[in-house]
């Protein structure tokens, strides 16, 4: 194809997205669109399955049978959501195993929030409330993104995730209505998870070079800072109901703007974790790579067995 032809196809392509038409896997698409989507969808998928680990850490220690079942179901949902997202990425011509290799080699990123440790039961509440709360803000916007398989996966995920944030908030509420020790546990979790949750929305707008392109392709509907503001505004009243406070001395209501002003994120910490040096980056990767490598003989056996069975059927038929 000549450059001119490609330019022409690109113009038609962009016009389709502007008209809110969905792009489907076999449609012609610019190489950059394909690559950007593989990157973003797989990052999202990796985040789901790495995200199973910090919460999975508390399945055996959940304090009641009801909480245990809910947590187990939630972590299982995350496996399901990872699976939906890997499938969406696979429609773009890359296999799940290739995506795993990118994760295991450190080439692919996942959400940094999961590199923080879960050291108390209240952390399970805080993750559901704050981390899922932040994730939902991003995910709801993605239900109308331009790439069909991604949008469909997000619709299913949003529907299923609606219980996740509620179960987290309910854990926090129970703690805050409990003994002083329980309430202190909730406050401690909020202290540790608040800033990492704000970091989930990514760098400040002026340091987020891909925003314009992502907006055009509807991979983003609002900027990082807009979403972060929305999160703060909706979360503070929820903290008030719990009766615990976010660890930010600069937080105050700005009457004129009708929103909260809040303090500055520790960007050094942000970049340190993104670059792989957070508290648990190493442990998370070891757990994922370990599960994959230990599972090799199981996956291989299933394939060999399937072939043997297929051959038997052929032999019986002839």
């Amino acid at each position: 194809m000549s450059d001119k032809e490609i330019k022409n196809l690109e113009a038609i392509f962009e016009a389709r997205i502007d008209r809110d038409e969905k792009i489907e896997p076999k449609d012609w698409m610019p190489e950059k669109y394909r690559q950007t989507h593989i990157r973003q969808i797989s990052q999202h998928a990796h985040s789901e399955i790495v995200g199973m680990l910090p919460e999975g850490n508390w399945i055996t220690r959940a304090p009641s049978l009801r909480r245990k079942a809910a947590l187990l179901a939630k972590v299982q949902d995350e496996a399901g959501h990872g699976l939906y997202l890997y499938s969406a990425a696979e429609t773009l011509g890359i296999s799940r195993n290739e995506l795993y290799e990118q994760l295991h080699s450190g080439k692919a990123k996942y959400s940094s929030i999961f590199n923080y440790p879960t050291i108390s039961w209240a952390d399970i509440g805080a993750i559901g409330w704050l981390v899922d709360g932040a994730a939902i803000i991003n995910q709801v916007a993605l239900c109308t993104t331009s790439f069909g398989p991604y949008a469909r996966a997000m619709v299913r995920i949003c529907k299923e995730e609606s219980f996740h944030q509620r179960q987290g908030y309910e854990i926090m509420l129970t703690l805050c209505k409990g003994t002083a020790e329980q309430k202190a546990m909730a406050q401690d979790a909020l202290n540790r998870w608040w800033w990492p949750s704000l970091m989930m929305f990514g760098p400040r707008d002026e340091e987020s070079p891909h925003t314009a392109q992502s907006m055009k392709w509807k991979l983003k509907r609002k900027t990082n800072d807009e979403l972060r503001q929305q999160f703060v505004d909706q979360t503070i009243p929820q903290a008030d109901i719990l009766g615990i406070t976010v660890p930010d001395p600069n937080l105050k209501w700005n009457e004129a703007k009708g929103q909260y002003d809040f303090g500055e994120i520790d960007w050094d910490e942000f970049w340190q974790v993104v670059k792989g040096h957070g508290p648990c980056n190493k442990e998370r990767m070891e757990a994922r790579v370990g599960a994959w490598e230990e599972g090799t003989w199981v996956r291989d056996a299933a394939m060999v067995y399937a072939e043997k069975q297929a051959n038997k059927k052929v032999a019986q038929a002839s």
Binding site: L83, Y84, R299, A302, Y305, A306
Partner: peptide, 11 residues
């Protein structure tokens, strides 16, 4: 509904 990986039809 979507897709998944499996070694054979039963799985």
């Amino acid at each position: 509904f979507g897709s998944l990986h499996a070694a054979d039809a039963e799985m």
